[in-house]
Write a protein that binds this DNA or RNA. Structure first.
Lengths: 233, 233
DNA sequence: GCAAACTTTCGTATAATTTCGTAATTAGTG
DNA sequence: CACTAATTACGAAATTATACGAAAGTTTGC
């Protein structure tokens, strides 16, 4: 067995056992302990395992730093429910628009069950999460709107206007009983309109916390939306 | 048997055995070990196999290459030094291109000392880091190249071509003594060329680990670069 | 055509590097 | 403090990189 084969073998073993001692690895792989330690140092420097006195533990993908935005996410549970419901409207082969909201971000994990989908989003965060799940995706690019981690502006909208999507999932800051869907930034309202214009269907994802909140900019009205997805009925 | 026939024969053998020694290949194909090694270097630079001391292993598609974004990056200290040195070439008010390399990513924290700069990058990761530092930035958008967390393709290049930048900071997988700067993916090489074309100045950031590594795709040559920034002189 | 100059390919020889075990020293743990 | 584990140092064996030259194939100019 070659060195790099041994490295992936160590990872395989860890995948199964989560942690193991240097001594056991040494016996299992028929090499001396110093060799195992060298291997582990390397794997540690690559950030794949964590060494401890006497052994190693697998570094879980859990402790990644990215979801900073999503961590401080409120109503995360309802959003998850809504996201799952939304996947009902996805078909294999669809071209999907996702806006840059945290609600919509929760759809990502569910999308990997579909084949040959292409996703277009204006959120770098969602784009990267899609990438992690192995989902082919395009990002619009444009000016980064910092507080909402979204690309906006003419560049972003131009990109959107070149795509013909099957479905759009979007959210917003608030909606009113009368059907007005509103947001607090022009730029974001604008790009959502652009997405809506170029998508066959548009699903509005909203949790109850958004009810009866009115912000400065109008996105659209309930009647412009194919369906509204909520946690309740 | 011609050279390229030998190459595909090596791949065939590997397909079946997954890994094999240089010595065995040498005997099976009736050529000397150095010849096999040359073949393997080539196949490796094409990303089809992984060399290891004593032999080669097939690069499984499944070979879970930890995405850049989760990988703790190596040579982080030298990269930090290089990044700091690079900031010497930034002026207030500059429009700056940053490519999607981890070396270049280390520049971000130093950029917040400059006023009125605008940064354009094809990396969602760098874009978000810039955002966190409060630096005004645009991302190119385009197709997400997963393993390097970079946007590439015609959309990304089109965006770049609309920008006139003052400086570009870029890196690559490898460079040779003779001045060739190369990378392992066409797409990434291509977008770097596009950035170079539209920037007044271009600084190549390279740490010693990249020395004398040759990959399949040419980006440019030392003479096309304004200055090379290294950890040493 | 044809020969000279050039390029590509490959083997040989040698220098440099990698890998890995042993042994000695240092550090960590209960 | 005793015991185990980790680090460091070092040497041996194997592998690889490099330099160089020979042979075969290509290109160029006449």
């Amino acid at each position: 067995m070659y060195t790099i084969e041994r490295h992936s073998e160590i990872l395989n073993i860890l995948e199964e056992k989560k942690s193991i001692s240097v001594e056991k690895l040494s016996k299992m792989l028929y090499v001396s302990a110093p060799t195992i330690r060298r291997d582990l140092s390397l794997l540690e420097s690559q950030g794949r395992v964590m060494r401890t006195h006497g052994g190693v533990v697998l570094k879980q993908a859990a402790e990644k730093e990215i979801p900073l935005m999503l961590r401080e996410d409120q109503n995360s549970d309802s959003k998850k429910i809504i996201a799952k419901k939304a996947t009902e409207f996805v078909r294999d082969g669809d071209v999907i628009f996702l806006d840059a909201s945290s609600t919509v971000a929760h759809i990502v994990p569910y999308l990997k069950n579909f084949k040959d989908i292409i996703v277009v989003t204006n959120s770098p965060l969602i784009s990267m999460k899609l990438g992690e799940e192995g989902i082919r995706n395009y990002c619009t690019g444009g000016l980064l709107l910092i507080h909402s981690v979204a690309y906006v502006g003419s560049e972003a909208e131009r990109f959107v206007s070149t795509i013909n999507a099957d479905v759009l999932f979007f959210s917003s800051r608030g909606y009113e009983e009368n059907g007005n869907i509103t947001d607090s930034s022009v730029e974001e309202a604008s790009i959502r309109k652009a997405m809506m214009k170029n998508s066959e269907k548009a699903y509005y994802l909203c949790d109850d916390s958004k009810k009866n909140k009115k912000y400065m900019y109008n996105i659209c009205s309930f009647k412009d939306v194919t369906k509204i997805v909520t946690e309740t009925e």
